[in-house]
């Protein structure tokens, strides 16, 4: 009996170590390469560590503010993702409150109708969405990426589910004390739903940060685009492997902000995502 557990334990370790190594090596390879000179990369080929560590690639990247303004791209991405996330959290908590703690005629019918419509594949609304952004004058502005995503139903569904687990007695006793809906929302409910809001916020941030198709469509102005769309241009700018170090350095710079966010918020990632209970009304 004891032996069995041990064997499977070591198998689990072996499996995890191999997979983690495969998953980590590309990132390390990118980092190492970004500190090597072009001549060294071409002449020496693949090496685990550089012969000479140089920072010239990063200096060159930061000095190129015309064709590849990577700091501007990073700032655009940070601005877009942060504002988007804050607005998502505000919208989903207020809307979730309305659909779970207020009583009005047709409430659940309205909610499930919107939810059903939102399941319709969004490839269909891609082209008209561009037209709407164009009409609003938002092409090449941050709003093109900040606002449309606020309409989604997925996060509202999660918040609503979470709120239904909070006893209604809390609201009622607050109401007896003379609190209105806005007070109950802000003082009673909001502190209690923090875990689900943090998870939705994290997913919104990384989703917005990594979005690719939409920014490639709505940004043509090099100075206005987020970093994902910008990196697409790099293959041409530092292209044909003439400036490999710069290419890798830019990729590494683009990775750093989400990594920082992840390390600060790590503990929330597993705790709040439990779907076992499923959809129960």
């Amino acid at each position: 009996m004891f032996k069995k557990i041990k064997v499977s334990k070591y198998l689990a370790y072996l499996f995890l170590i191999v997979v983690s190594a495969i998953w980590t090596i590309p990132v390390i390879f990118g980092i190492v390469t970004s500190f090597r000179s072009q001549t060294e990369i071409v002449n020496e080929g693949f090496r685990l560590l550089p012969v000479n560590w140089i920072v010239d690639n990063y200096v060159a990247i930061l000095e190129n503010t015309s064709s590849a303004p990577i700091l501007q791209w990073l700032w655009n991405s940070i601005f877009i993702a942060t504002l988007h996330t804050l607005l998502v959290v505000a919208v989903i908590s207020i809307t979730g409150y309305g659909y779970s703690r207020m009583k009005f005629k047709g409430r659940d019918f309205l909610f499930f109708t919107l939810l059903a419509i939102s399941f319709f594949p969004n490839v269909v609304n891609l082209i008209p969405s561009y037209k709407i952004i164009d009409i609003l004058g938002w092409v090449n502005t941050p709003w093109a990426m900040i606002v449309p995503g606020l309409a989604g139903m997925g996060n509202i569904f999660l918040v609503r589910q979470f709120m239904r687990g909070i006893p209604m007695e809390l609201d009622e006793s607050a109401r007896v004390d003379g609190a209105g809906d806005f007070t109950i929302y802000a003082k009673v409910i909001l502190p209690l739903i923090r875990p689900v809001l943090i998870v939705c916020g994290l997913f919104s941030f990384t989703g917005s940060w990594n979005d690719f198709l939409w920014p490639v469509i709505v940004y043509t102005d090099v100075d206005k685009m987020p970093v994902t769309a910008g990196l697409l241009l790099l293959q041409d700018i530092y292209g044909n492997y003439r400036m490999i170090g710069q290419l890798m350095g830019s990729a590494i710079l683009a990775i750093i902000p989400t990594l920082l966010l992840f390390f600060f918020a790590q503990k929330y990632f597993v705790s709040a995502i439990n779907l076992n209970s499923g959809i129960k009304g």
């Binding site: 997979v19 983690s20 998953w23 980590t24 590309p26 990132v27 390879f29 990118g30 390469t33 990384t206 940060w209 990594n210 690719f212 970093v227 994902t228 769309a229 990196l231 697409l232 790099l234 293959q235 492997y241 490999i244 290419l247 890798m248 830019s250 990729a251 590494i252 683009a254 990775i255 989400t258 990594l259 966010l261 992840f262 990632f269």
Partner: peptide, 19 residues
């Protein structure tokens, strides 16, 4: 370690993997 690649934007990842 296994989650981190999901946080890397696909265009940055593609640059590294292409190399």
């Amino acid at each position: 370690l296994l989650y981190i690649p999901g946080l890397i934007s696909i265009s940055a990842a593609a640059l590294v993997w292409s190399l």
